[in-house]
Simulated assay, not measured.
Amino acid sequence: MSAATDTLRKTPLYDLHLALGARMVPFAGYHMPVQYPQGLLREHQHTRQAAGLFDVSHMGQVRLHGAQAAAALETLIPMDVLGLGLHRQRYGLLLNDDGGILDDLMFVNRGDDLWLVVNGACKAADIAHLQARIGQRCHVEPLPERALLALQGPLAVQALQRVLPGVERLVFMTGMPATWEGADLYVTRSGYTGEDGFEISVPGDAATAFAQALLAQPEVKPIGLGARNSLRLEAGLCLHGHDIDTTTTPAEAALGWAIQKVRRRGGARAGGFPGAERVLAQLDGSAPLQRLRVGLIAQERVPVREPAPLHTPAGEAVGQVTSGLLSPTLDQPIAMGYVASAHAAVGTVLHAIVRGRPVPMTVTALPFVPPRYHRG
């Protein structure tokens, strides 16, 4: 083992991954399974058809608690936190003072606290940011001892309700506490694949046994990071550090839908978050967008990957691919990227430059594969 891999951390499921034959790779500072013996394509297809189990314990779990927790979090994200109902979940964007996206996250109102899930590669910086900006108004408590599992796919509910009866009552973006063999769990009906599914926070010392209980269900197979990436791209979901970063704003990233009316101009709690002036001006059109995140489908069966430049057919550089691969579901090369606003209309033909050769791509609406979230 090299010195570089010696510094990598292990999730509570590390030994189980090895026992299942996973190929491990460095990711976000951890040893993580990129695929299992069945391979990425079959793992992707199995998740679309049945239920796939993902170890996402590299993600950061954080509790915010105290009387001012919701109001404090609203000063850092442009989402409606104060109006979030009990056991309701929402997608959030942690912004810098220029309105750039430090990270995207999920947060749940659990009554006594707000539970946040942040990206693994960003979690140390996110926690430091939370503590520096709002640590005087509420308790910012990292939860490194907890594991996080995601069970995704159309049959996920059938498998999980045998292990945790009652989860079938959840709808998309809601959560509930649960107990399994004495361990305190928290379950949300959410995920990163475009499929129906669940994310389950579990104590680290119970994670392996709980994962084995799920893998014992006939619908469930283990799935690695490779298929997680192809599934999320088909669903049109952003990967921080690729499709969104500190230089992109919510409107540029086509994430304006995540900002509720109450936080926009004219709303009861408009603004008051980092970069608000720029973010809100872009959302209401008073500050025109120079670029926009779009979906792209190749007209030839040539995989187009980041950071391929995007040109007009006349050769003018107008953007860049941020994520791309051959879609297992569509059997076509798909990509997301940023293009100058004048070239962002659906149907526009652009050329991705791959090894010096132009590959025609058509701007298309996102997502590439329709989501199947369970909304009740």
Rank of each mutant, 00 (worst) to 15 (best):
250 P>E: 05
212 Q>E: 15
23 R>C: 02
3 A>D: 13
90 R>E: 14
347 G>P: 11
85 G>N: 12
95 L>F: 05
295 G>R: 00
193 T>F: 01
36 Y>R: 14
249 T>L: 10
169 R>K: 14
44 H>S: 08
43 E>Y: 04
307 P>S: 11
372 R>S: 15
19 A>Q: 14
244 I>L: 11
43 E>W: 06
350 L>D: 01
268 A>M: 11
309 P>R: 14
276 A>N: 04
149 L>A: 06
204 G>F: 06
77 I>G: 00
323 S>K: 08
145 E>N: 13
56 V>N: 01
221 K>Y: 08
168 E>K: 14
105 L>T: 05
138 C>A: 12
133 R>A: 10
89 Q>V: 15
218 P>G: 01
239 L>E: 11
131 Q>M: 03
224 G>H: 04
290 Q>R: 05
48 R>V: 10
274 P>S: 08
48 R>F: 09
127 I>K: 10
373 Y>S: 03
337 G>W: 06
186 Y>R: 09
88 R>Q: 14
102 L>A: 03
128 A>K: 15
184 D>W: 03
313 P>L: 06
360 P>M: 00
312 T>V: 11
222 P>L: 09
109 N>C: 06
198 F>I: 04
39 G>P: 13
184 D>R: 12
3 A>L: 15
193 T>H: 00
111 G>W: 00
370 P>V: 00
306 E>L: 07
55 D>W: 08
203 P>C: 11
184 D>K: 11
93 L>S: 01
167 V>Y: 14
350 L>S: 05
37 P>Q: 14
238 C>Q: 08
307 P>A: 15
353 I>N: 00
23 R>L: 08
247 T>I: 05
59 M>C: 09
32 M>W: 13
169 R>Y: 03
50 A>P: 03
90 R>W: 02
7 T>Y: 03
239 L>A: 11
361 M>W: 02
228 R>A: 15
252 E>W: 13
49 Q>Y: 01
131 Q>S: 10
163 V>Q: 06
25 V>D: 04
298 A>F: 01
179 T>C: 14
306 E>H: 12
105 L>Y: 10
289 L>V: 07
331 D>S: 09
69 A>S: 13
178 A>G: 10
4 A>H: 12
115 W>C: 01
331 D>N: 13
190 S>I: 00
172 F>G: 03
232 R>T: 00
150 A>K: 12
71 A>L: 07
22 A>Q: 04
227 A>L: 05
344 A>V: 02
251 A>L: 08
288 P>W: 04
375 R>D: 00
265 R>A: 07
58 H>E: 06
261 K>A: 15
297 I>Q: 13
